[in-house]
Design a protein around this nucleic acid. Structure first.
Lengths: 338, 338
DNA sequence: TTGTAGGCGTTATCAC
DNA sequence: GTGATAACGCCTACAA
């Protein structure tokens, strides 16, 4: 029962031939006689020989491994990215090694070091919300390990990235609000440090400008994603005489939290406030009172495209890796009230 | 810019000392002089030397890698498992390489072969719904690669596993139904081939027996998780004169589908039917009309405990790896109707 | 057609 | 205190 994996060396000894003969026989090298090949094949079969990939990769000086750094695995958005990446990587013979930064910059730096130690062939990353400089990723690239940023794009430096066109997504949502007659539209955004927050806000502004609607600065707030902070923001808005009748939120989960806060603390006003967020979570369709719409992104496609881009980059020598940004469309999905 | 990772060998050449001296210096070996150590440390710093883990693992004949095989990454339950596993593995210096079987037995077998080729130190698996024999996993164990089964436990053979006590979970749910006065309680179960389906049903039967309620065989059906099949089952029940007033479903997503089917096709009866499923999905709390309850499992804990068990097993020689099953409690979480 | 030798990056066991 | 050497599993250019 308890066996160790057989090696070509052992097989060579058993058969009384050289190691290289066994190796060549296994690889169907033309210079090996049929008889020998058959002997080797039979023995390999019998011992259930499986070549040691680790050794092969080691010799080839590559690991056929892609490192993936994500903020969280508890967020459906990131697991969808992971899902797309896994599919694409596996199809091309690459493994994924996956880890979570927990949205901590310190941890992210550790993970980058970890990736370098492990000599992954490339890295996919959705950087943490704390990440404001990208030196650690640049270091990785300077070691000839290409990096593709997913979803969260560093504006500060020129990098390879695949993101959602959240600016347009936000624009669509606010346009929809305006079409529906809303004039006081709030934006419950994510932290300013995240490029994706700034992009969202640009879209919000775009739509206002296009319709020549004034911006009310007090209607633009940033959350740290905590329920307390969200409540504080909603309170600040709803306690105004002219409270906003529409809210663009960072993502669906926050939409739901807003709606739950409204229901609990402002039940009489709840029906007057429309809310839209990013994500279009699978379960929204099952709600009796879903948000009026949701901005659907394509996270699995982000993962897939990022992986495919990374695979291309890995073929190229460093100097030829010209940077590019792919922005995938967002789609506004509306939910009719029953 | 374009550099290659420096090696001990290069540093040795640069410093004009031997490779082994450099190696020892880096590892702070006592037999190396302070001066040499400092020279080496300075150079390593300057070149940003990072040891090649792949080479180290290769020499140590281990990969410090755990293979994880999951049916899907699109299911929150499995990503929670993955999340728990990742945390535990990383804390102990192990990497995860992760892949999806897409609930296909053929693919699962490929992945097992893949794991063997890659010489992972151990495997965590939630087997596919098609898996009815476990020879491929046994083969893995016979190659001295321990396997821990998560959530989906093969009854047929003695293995290491960490699962939910779904039998008790189902019992709790049905007991709750009975306490609420329900007498015709249906079971929309998963495929019979999955042990977890059979366990769920045992719990369903347990509760009936304990309350001496008769079982109505037509109220027990198995879904393949498709919407069509679910509709067919719900139709078959709701078109009876005495339709069930309570349904135990395989998981929350199916609960939501049932509720949506009821709403669409049996709106007058909808309020008379209570539904409970497994999962207690995070978003249920935001629904205006959530299911009356949900059976909460501990997927992250399953991942964590399975990983910790696997790490233990990997320390032991094969013969001493006595099998065990850990069953984690389920908790019935009730939702009050507003 | 087959065998020999060298190397991938590292560590460990010696001998000096 | 330092260095030479072998070894891990595999591949491959070259020699026989």
């Amino acid at each position: 029962m308890e066996k160790k994996a057989p090696t070509i060396k052992e097989m060579a000894r058993t058969l009384g031939i050289s190691i290289s003969a066994v190796s060549k026989a296994l690889n169907n090298h033309p210079s090996i006689g049929l008889y020998t090949k058959e002997r080797v094949a039979r023995l390999a079969q019998k011992l259930n020989y499986v070549p040691n990939q680790a050794a092969i990769y080691f010799k080839q000086k590559k690991t056929c491994t892609i490192g993936v750094i994500l903020p969280h695995l508890t967020d459906h958005f990131y697991t969808s990215i992971l899902c797309g990446a896994e599919t694409e990587a596996m199809q091309n013979g690459y493994n994924l090694i996956m880890c979570q930064s927990y949205d901590s910059l310190a941890r992210e730096k550790e993970l980058v070091a970890f990736m370098q130690k492990n000599r992954v062939d490339g890295v996919l990353v959705a950087s943490s919300k704390e990440t404001i400089n990208y030196n650690h990723f640049q270091a990785l690239e300077s070691w000839n390990i290409p990096v593709v940023h997913m979803a969260r794009q560093p504006k500060q430096y020129d990098c390879h990235s695949v993101i959602s066109n959240v600016r347009d997504g936000a624009r669509q949502a606010v346009n929809y609000f305006i079409e529906q007659g809303h004039r006081r539209i709030a934006h419950l955004n994510g932290p300013e440090t995240m490029a994706t927050s700034r992009e969202r806000h640009s879209g919000y502004l775009d739509a206002h400008r296009a319709h020549q609607l004034p911006i009310h600065p007090e209607l633009v707030q940033q959350t740290d994603f905590s329920r307390e902070r969200n409540k504080q923001i909603v309170d600040s808005w709803m306690q105004q005489d002219e409270f906003p009748t529409a809210i663009l939120a960072f993502k669906d989960l926050i939409v739901l939290e807003i709606m739950s806060l409204l229901k609990q603390y402002y039940p009489d006003k709840k029906e007057q406030v429309a809310v839209i967020g990013f994500g279009n979570h699978q379960l929204l369709q099952y709600m009796d009172h879903p948000p009026c719409a949701s901005i659907e992104e394509q996270p699995a496609m982000i993962g897939q495209r990022a992986t495919s881009l990374l695979l291309e980059l890995m073929q190229l020598p460093g100097e030829q890796r010209s940077t590019s940004t792919t922005a995938l469309d967002c789609k506004l999905v509306t939910y009719e009230r029953p």
